[in-house]
Amino acid sequence: MRKITLFFIFVGGIMFAQQPQSYLELSNQNQTNEYNSETATVINNSSQGIIATYVAKVLFDIGLEENCSEPTVTYEDFLGGPIEIFDCGLTMSNAGDGCYDPGELEIGFQISASNGSNTVSIPAGAIGNTDPLAGAITFAEYTVVEFTPSVYAIAMDLWENNFPLTDIRVYGETGDLIETIQWDVPTNLQVFFGMIADEPISKIEVQGEQDSGELVGNLYFGATCEALSVNDHILSQLSVYPNPTNDIVTIKMPPNVELVSIKLFDVLGNLVLKNANLTQIDVSNLSSGLYLLDIITTAGTVSKKIVRK
């Protein structure tokens, strides 16, 4: 009986030792899981400094336009890396690393792992992923993404290897923790996550529960999205249509806001049209091209780009 007991303990030890502890130990699956950006859900978000979170790219794009004075973001797809799962060293950045040449990745971010662990590059299809992924190489460590300069908007695909609950810790420009967002992320599936803050973000930490091995891909970062004033929110409701146009442009004013005057400039900055409080503008006599329309209202001034077809 003693020999049998020892035998089973030994076998159990072998089985435990064979469990993969890092992405380098995973064999290439050479398959692609179906991408579903609607699957992730926010479990807890106290919204301290975070304006909104998003589960779909199209909603994130709308959020940028609605909340950010400068909605432009940088996109990193992580293409051009190794054709197999590869150890990239301590960091991944525009400066170059074990997986990407200097200048190959977009400038403005750096990926590292907690506790001085190395990072990993996962090519598309290697573990069932649709697109390249990057992050901490071992399952016991978590993925860190730092931004220089700080940013207001971040979006990415998340990947969890073996446990769905994921904490995303968001840090401000001074290094203080702004927010912890918990996501229920399906395992072995790329899932979109996006967020917009009203204060600068310098770093995020992505940590799954129970050493689940979190990765990121299709990274978007940037924008300027400070909290808007009351008048800014009001003026964000002002619209100009149709745009592009052949002849008449109509200005739709927000409630309780009056139009004072308008000025229309060409791309060289020349004033081509100036009117009093007219909500309809005839541009049929102007040349085709891009124009800048300054709209002066009782709530402030807003500029709109219009195109004369």
Score class of each variant (00 low, 15 high):
224 T>Y: 15
188 N>Q: 15
200 P>M: 05
244 P>F: 02
242 P>N: 06
188 N>H: 03
219 L>I: 13
241 Y>V: 02
236 S>E: 11
188 N>D: 12
210 Q>A: 10
197 A>Y: 02
221 F>G: 05
222 G>C: 12
211 D>S: 15
215 L>C: 07
183 W>G: 00
233 H>F: 03
183 W>Q: 13
238 L>F: 08
210 Q>H: 11
204 I>P: 04
205 E>M: 11
210 Q>I: 13
229 S>C: 08
204 I>W: 01
228 L>S: 10
197 A>E: 03
232 D>E: 15
200 P>S: 03
195 M>S: 00
205 E>V: 00
240 V>Q: 03
207 Q>G: 12
198 D>I: 02
238 L>A: 07
210 Q>N: 13
182 Q>V: 03
188 N>W: 04
183 W>N: 10
227 A>K: 14
234 I>V: 04
191 V>N: 11
246 N>G: 08
239 S>T: 07
245 T>A: 13
186 P>R: 08
243 N>V: 04
217 G>R: 14
209 E>L: 03
215 L>R: 14
216 V>E: 10
205 E>I: 02
184 D>R: 05
237 Q>G: 09
228 L>Q: 13
185 V>F: 09
201 I>K: 05
223 A>G: 04
236 S>M: 08
185 V>C: 14
198 D>N: 14
208 G>N: 01
238 L>Y: 02
234 I>D: 01
188 N>Y: 08
223 A>E: 04
243 N>Y: 01
227 A>D: 15
183 W>C: 00
239 S>W: 07
225 C>D: 01
187 T>V: 07
246 N>A: 05
221 F>S: 10
223 A>Q: 05
213 G>H: 11
230 V>I: 12
225 C>A: 00
222 G>I: 02
211 D>I: 03
209 E>Q: 13
232 D>W: 12
231 N>I: 05
210 Q>D: 14
207 Q>S: 10
227 A>I: 14
192 F>R: 12
208 G>H: 00
182 Q>T: 13
215 L>S: 06
207 Q>N: 09
187 T>H: 01
182 Q>I: 08
245 T>E: 11
236 S>W: 11
219 L>G: 02
235 L>R: 01
230 V>W: 07
240 V>Y: 06
206 V>H: 10
215 L>V: 04
212 S>G: 12
227 A>R: 05
189 L>V: 14
229 S>Q: 08
200 P>A: 11
183 W>T: 01
233 H>M: 12
193 F>T: 06
239 S>E: 12
187 T>R: 14
184 D>W: 08
231 N>G: 09
211 D>P: 00
232 D>A: 09
226 E>A: 08
240 V>R: 00
223 A>K: 08
192 F>D: 06
213 G>K: 12
203 K>P: 00
238 L>G: 10
214 E>I: 05
212 S>W: 03
241 Y>P: 02
239 S>M: 06
186 P>F: 15
184 D>Y: 10
238 L>C: 09
237 Q>V: 07
186 P>W: 15
206 V>Q: 04
207 Q>K: 11
210 Q>S: 12
196 I>P: 03
203 K>T: 00
190 Q>K: 10
190 Q>A: 12
188 N>I: 06
198 D>G: 05
239 S>L: 05
207 Q>R: 08
223 A>M: 03
197 A>L: 08
